[in-house]
Amino acid sequence: MRIVSYVLKRLAYLVPVLLGVTLLVFIISHAIPGDPARMMAGQKASREAVENLRRSMGLDRPLYEQYLRYLAGLVQGDLGFSIRNQRPVLEDMRDFFPATLELTLASMLLCVTVGVPLGILSAVRRNRPIDHLSRIFSVFGVSMPVFWLGLMLLLLFYRHLGWLPGSGRLDIGIDPPAFVTGIYLLDSLLAGSLGTFRNALAHILLPAFCLSYVYLAIITRIVRSSMIAVMGLDFITTARANGIAEIVIISKHCLKNALIPTVTITGLSIGELLGGAILTETIFNWPGMGKYVVDSVNFLDFPAIMGFTLVVSFAYVLINLAVDVVYAFLDPQIRY
């Protein structure tokens, strides 16, 4: 029960956090010199056209009034109206967020399924060839520029070998599945279209790998070092002395204790990735939040910038909360 009240308390904190975020982003984005009405009106627009636009978007109102209006809308679940796309920001989010979520989940899946076993293997076979290889792999991952890696992957697998498709979420000629979640892998299965599913899967492989590589490398290193630390502790020696099988010691006793830093890193990475991986999205032409927000900033689309920041901060806070809850399960000593 304690954990429930803890979660509720943390959720209540969300309100001041998000309020703070809106205020900060509002101030910062309005401090940028530039005029969104001018941007929207076009290169050569007359002053009259710009003023008409400014009025119709409410940009002629005093700043505090604009902010209060925004908050009033927010309470009713209205994230505002995008200046650039001329439609509610919520609809933009509906279109762009699922692509980012899909890519994030796919890369996290890769991180965890490859990174954790590789880290364990390195720890168990410490200073043996497999450990060295995994170290090289990790150093490569942390230091490789994503931009270059993405291009090289495309050049090799798409242009030269022709094994995998090029950029985008689906082949150019394939119609997207009917919108349910916006996650193509899921929606295509729900629509019973195996061909689209396979195509979406083929398309996500390279960007997911490219995006996960950095985090994969970090996770491998962290699992390795925390495994080594745990393996040297007394309770493991005791377990060994009791004749417990090595595989049980590793998987049950060491891993569970070594997972706490891994969970922290994974949580933080998901939060970071949900904000959109701008470079990966650009190279693989992935229509996600990263590209959306860069365009919005270039266009001074204030409501879109605010909406984006709110959604990402919301997700970030929730993920942090989830990570804290997972701690309690991993380590019985942690109590809330």
């Binding site: 291009l151 495309l154 050049l155 798409y158 242009r159 022709g162 090029g166 950029s167 985008g168 082949d171 150019i172 000629g173 650009t282 190279i283 693989f284 032409n285 229509p287 590209k291």
Partner: peptide, 21 residues
Amino acid sequence: VIIRFMRESSDQRMALESGDI
């Protein structure tokens, strides 16, 4: 007519060379 948004110049080049666009 399919208008495909591809921001990267190199991405467009590969797709043109492959006959995808």
